[in-house]
Design a protein around this nucleic acid. Structure first.
Lengths: 124, 124
DNA sequence: TTAAACCCTGGAGCGTGCTCCAAGTCAAGC
DNA sequence: GCTTGACTTGGAGCACGCTCCAGGGTTTAA
């Protein structure tokens, strides 16, 4: 696949794809003889993974480290696990914080609902 | 309260507090006759609210708009409600996305657990 | 009354994560 | 062969959210 095809498929700009590759988030993208990127199925799986992780806020640097470990082979399995566990914990904490904020927004919204319904009743 | 007291109480730097005030996120902070900020209880409630919303990723611009509406009085109750509902929806969507990513991390971690336990069994 | 510690403003600087652009190469259709 | 459009790299630029700093006033305690 060409870069524009992958771009459309995953909703990432070609610039973002090149940027990710430069920072080591997408390992080993092959090139045509004229230097154009040719994304393989495996490349696509990486891209989809990276997109998902970035969407949840994992930093580029951490993902880059994960990919680097992956490329070093089986000896890094434990390190990769530790990295994922740490990111999992941080993600869980962020979700918890956001859920509390969500509850607070719900509370505030229902307060406004009440204010508005009282105001409407007053008009009758 | 002084800015450094509020700073410690909420874990925000004095610079961040001044920055928020400049952008309209903390309305009407009084000053001492020499120009020092004197935070009231109500100021503190705003700060705590803003800190919570920022922690969940609500943009400064949106919060600033909310505060501006609040300061315009009762006629903006409906607009404030709409603003909160929209932010609530976006927050809910982000939480959903993050939960999916969490599930994916869990899956990957349990995969690594398996790889590691197989490797350990192989050593025996 | 003087040093240390705190506060002020305005503006520059910085980290993150892209996004855009110039200048050039390559490919496909006419 | 020529044009049009896609691709390349390297680097500049940008949006967001602070963070830091200079230069200067204030407060407090010795």
């Amino acid at each position: 696949m060409t870069i524009s095809e992958v771009s459309k498929k995953y909703g990432l700009t070609p610039d973002a794809l090149r940027y990710y590759e430069r920072l080591g988030l997408i390992p080993g993208v092959r090139r045509s003889k004229s230097g154009f990127r040719e994304y393989s199925e495996e490349d696509c799986r990486w891209i989809e993974f990276i997109k998902c992780m970035r969407g949840a806020g994992l930093p580029i640097e951490v993902l880059s480290e994960y990919v680097a470990l992956f490329r070093q082979g089986d000896s890094t399995v434990e390190a990769r696990r530790r990295l994922l566990v740490e990111q999992r914990e941080q993600l869980l904490a962020r979700i918890g914080e956001m859920q509390e904020t969500l509850a607070r927004l719900d509370f505030k919204i229902s307060f406004y609902d009440e204010v508005l319904s009282v105001a409407e009743a007053g008009l009758k």
